[in-house]
Write a protein that binds this DNA or RNA. Sequence first.
DNA 1: GTCTATACCCCGATAGAC
DNA 2: GTCTATCGGGGTATAGAC
Lengths: 214, 214
Amino acid sequence: MDARERLVAAMADLLWERGYVGTSPSAVLRRSGVGQGSLYHHFRGKQDLAVAAIEANAEVLRAAARATLLPDGHAYLRLERFLLRDRDVLRGCRIGRLTQDPEVCSTEELRRPVAETLRWIRQTLAEVVATGQARGELDDAVPADEVASAVLATLQGGYVLARAEQEEQRSTAAVRGVLALLRGLVRPRDDPDMPAGLEPPTHRPDTANPGSHA
Amino acid sequence: MDARERLVAAMADLLWERGYVGTSPSAVLRRSGVGQGSLYHHFRGKQDLAVAAIEANAEVLRAAARATLLPDGHAYLRLERFLLRDRDVLRGCRIGRLTQDPEVCSTEELRRPVAETLRWIRQTLAEVVATGQARGELDDAVPADEVASAVLATLQGGYVLARAEQEEQRSTAAVRGVLALLRGLVRPRDDPDMPAGLEPPTHRPDTANPGSHA
DNA sequence: GTCTATACCCCGATAGAC
DNA sequence: GTCTATCGGGGTATAGAC
């Protein structure tokens, strides 16, 4: 791992933990073990390095979303798998947290990759919903984009609630809640290979256990 | 308004806009028009002033929640009123945003008022849901706390999505989505004064228009 | 109570040797 | 490419006059 990569990795971690205004170049140098000179050789400055680090974090997020959403199947189960993916809840979302940073929001170069990543995830979720609606798995009276937005927002808000109380369980409850609500969209099917327990009025109080992580 | 109040008000605004690590005492002094000496006369320092300011912001939030939730009525409509309250979406949540601040999360005195405020709102929402379930207005197969957590998380996550793209509409979509999902919990009633259009399978594509603010 | 002056440190960036 | 030295500025807090 060369100096440039070490700098990006260290900045990516610090952006996740402390945000942009909370991260100083010297902290990046300490964590990466790289010297001052390397930073300003490979990058124009803090902001330039941060853009590279945000894009690195974004790719981690996109890869995880792809891994949980790509396998085809019943739309509800695809969303469930996405929502129940193992997450480091108390650490927060490495991209979502940046939306609370004043410098990120007021600097186009910093905000753009954040916006694009969240938009991509939302649209990917919306495709899952729309596909499910087209197949008759889900009620199609609700716009797919609104369902997708609610799902992603619940996840992002779950981080907020969990971090506030420093209890991962607070995120789990929100996710379980939105999953229960999503089951209200599931339509009955004559299809014999429909997942068990997905008939609409059943709210599966504890069938799909979220486990310790949510 | 005396110096002390001006300091608290200025710090409260800056915590909302820039968070704790992003706010310096000198910025507070500039905004409040108060001198350096007053700050360190009335408060032990930045952290002490921030605690007072967080509690001021918390009270604003609790008052707004009380105002939208207290009026009795159908549980779904109470939640809808809470979710559709006029909000300064792009500014974010004056309490929720602090959960993304590294110093707030690692300092008990700063985190406690944040945690207590969000917990109070969540529990208040859960009471609304539980009351609705007891009255037969809402399906009681889903734990009230999980529904409340999902509602609050959607709101908090809505700020994240809206700030990322700098479009208030991104929050509106999430709120509309969770409202549509909540309507799946509404139970039919023989009661003649039941709100129109709340029969379960109906997803009211556009009846309850969220307006420009969400 | 409020003011100005000052201390000390770290921030983000640059210079120039190697 | 990477190092150390250094810069100007601002952060947080204290001192002491008024």
